[in-house]
């Protein structure tokens, strides 16, 4: 006898598919577990655009509907994030949206008058720095650092090889570190 929160994601998905008494509860439990990371992905992927909420909702609607299909499920969070990613990419395409890339110079100019005294400031800097990254690096960074996915899961979500993921994550982090280095060192001295 298990409480519903003790079921694995895959078991919950099967319960959700079963259309039996607890299938809504199973969806609720999955939502409870994974909605924050999906929301974080949408928000950061789309750079805080209003569309993020709509896409977040669409993601879970699609996921819910996916239970109607006969499919094997082995990695629920990766599956949901894959849905979210596809929707985000489509949204960018359909609405002719582009990531707001900020040039390094603009970034430096924007931030040079700020005083950086702690994590909040560093967080602002990171978010700004994220916008300076090329899409493929930005996404890897988000999936790794915001969503906590393993390299293999990131590869599954993005249809990339693990080797590519490894390289891109490293480069993304190096790029962000490179941008933030002066500020981090400043903070480190305080």
């Amino acid at each position: 006898m298990k409480n519903i929160e003790e079921y694995s994601d895959d078991e919950l998905f099967q319960i959700m598919r079963s259309k039996k008494g607890l299938h809504d509860a199973a969806f609720g439990e999955i939502y409870k577990r994974h909605s924050p990371r999906v929301f974080a992905y949408c928000k950061r992927f789309l750079g805080g655009r209003e569309e993020a909420r709509d896409i977040f909702q669409e993601t879970f609607i699609s996921f819910f509907k996916s239970g109607e299909q006969d499919r094997e499920m082995t990695n629920v969070p990766a599956f949901i994030l894959r849905i979210a990613r596809n929707l985000c990419v489509n949204a960018l395409k359909n609405k002719n949206m582009k990531f707001v890339h900020v040039s390094y110079e603009d970034f430096m100019a924007f931030n040079e008058e700020k005083s950086y005294e702690g994590d909040e400031e560093l967080l602002d800097l990171i978010n700004n720095a994220l916008d300076t990254l090329p899409d493929k690096y930005k996404e890897m960074f988000i999936l790794r650092e915001y969503d906590g996915l393993s390299y293999a899961d990131i590869a599954a979500v993005t249809d990339e090889t693990v080797a590519n993921v490894k390289v891109r994550i490293h480069r993304a982090k190096q790029k962000i570190r490179e941008i933030l280095e002066p500020y981090i060192k400043e903070i480190d001295k305080m």
Partner: peptide, 22 residues
Amino acid sequence: EMLAIREAVQKDVKKLVPPYET
């Protein structure tokens, strides 16, 4: 430095939760 970045991101993660209305 990487730890500092990670810690800051983790704080961001905690803030990024779906609103109740959503």
